[in-house]
Design a protein around this nucleic acid. Structure first.
Lengths: 245, 245
DNA sequence: AAAACAAACGTAAAAATGACGTTTAAAATT
DNA sequence: AATTTTAAACGTCATTTTTACGTTTGTTTT
């Protein structure tokens, strides 16, 4: 067994979820367990991303999709492969059994990292076999391996992506209010945006479609609900070339 | 040997070079050779990217930098890791000796792909041990493996990058004219841009600095030379948040 | 001196942005 | 039933940026 693999490939997934109630961008992490030599699990006092090794005949995308499915039960979420991490020393700080086993053999573990976008509420935390939990992006717990670096780089990529494309709607329910979009942008980009100007800009987009519905169950004036039309967006953006330097 | 590796990692490099004379964005490719069993090389009638396997104690970035150095002699060029390719069937069309050897063992080759930006003229094609050659991005020859897909995805990433950041100057000499910048943008983005409006927009940027120099050796009115200041750009762009959706 | 021609400048209307103040509609309270 | 409360929604105006063009200028070549 020891000699079978010198290079080890895994896929790690950063799951971003937006919580409309607390208005925060969260990351889904799980408590870290290690297999001990005796077969029982050892709990380490930190959190990590979910990652798995690739199955035979699986593409990288397949593996990422499978990881998300196993973790959350969800499929068809927005997914982006954003970086591969392969420093020879990326796990050198670890003193765990699983790595020590291979130490003499110059084991290198390369991970291809993905991030997913979804709504916090879509994940059922009951029946929690992975001990998974949401953490706000700006208040993370102790993170194992080099996963803090991976989360940070995923977040940087996400911010840039949000400025260039309407991926923000992946973090919101199908029907949303303008103020909700406003709040997600502020949370994700970590900046203040003038609500009135933002509202005007958004409402003028042809792919932001007002519905014949309003919020229900709110204790103040209920807000107009809108939806985002990916189709209209795609048609409009064929010839966009705003050089933004 | 056969059992040592089941997963194979390599780094492939898409080298983009802009040619100020022909005004085209080019890709550097090399003729494909294979090692035969008898030790001599077999020439295949197509072109491929340059890629290598990682050395021990090398980061992915190190490997990419080494590949470029060996291919072109250049260091310190703009470099971006843009995607990992790991489909189990990505090389399945290949009937080459080197792969057939491993066929029974379900060999998977994952490649981490980078692209580089530089000036065509900086690469010396004399003493050409790799039989490397520039090809215009929109007139590529027959490409081996799945490298056409990799080139295409690199180009898509480059276009998006150019819209968001001033990486275009990596393709130009230190001193350039406004018209040259105009031409690179048109070549890379494959669109027409009004020259007068473009000129005004660029000249108004504080990080585009006019020099006390003009073109020499041109047969018409010589143009003003400019330079790009990365320092000024960085200082100015700290708080930019133009949501461009 | 004149011609040729790319480089460089100009202008005016339209659209987008930034920074604010004001009104409105529904629910809750009196 | 009227009043209060408060978030939602609209409005304005000055400034900046963009779009779509026409015109002038400065070298080199003829």
């Amino acid at each position: 067994m020891k000699f079978e693999k010198i290079t080890n490939i895994s896929v790690d997934c950063v799951v971003f979820g937006y919580d409309t109630i607390s208005k925060s961008l969260n990351v889904l992490l799980m408590k870290r367990y290690l297999e001990s030599d005796k077969g029982s699990d050892i709990l380490v006092n930190d959190h990590v991303l979910t990652g798995y090794h690739m199955h035979k005949n699986e593409t990288l995308d397949d593996t990422a999709t499978r990881v998300l499915k196993e973790l959350t039960g969800l499929t068809n979420q927005y997914k982006k492969q954003f970086k591969a991490f392969g420093d020879p020393n990326r796990l050198s700080g670890e003193k765990d059994l699983i790595w020590i086993k291979h130490e003499g053999f110059n084991l290198r573990t390369i991970t291809v990292a993905y991030y997913f976008l979804l709504k916090t509420e879509d994940v059922d935390l009951k029946n929690n076999k992975y001990q998974k939990q949401w953490f706000p992006i700006n208040n993370l717990p102790e993170i194992g391996f080099d996963h803090e670096k991976i989360i940070f780089e995923a977040y940087e990529d996400l911010k840039i992506k949000c400025l260039a494309e309407p991926v923000i709607f992946e973090l919101l329910p199908d029907k949303f209010t303008i103020n909700e979009v406003h709040e997600v942008y502020q949370s994700v980009l970590d900046i203040n945006i003038d609500n009135r100007n933002f509202r005007r800009k958004l409402i003028n987009k042809k792919y932001i479609i007002p519905l014949d519905e309003k919020q229900v169950g709110v204790s103040k004036k209920p807000a107009q609900l809108y939806m985002f039309s990916k189709d209209i967006y795609k048609k409009m953006f064929q010839k966009n070339y705003l050089i933004n330097i």
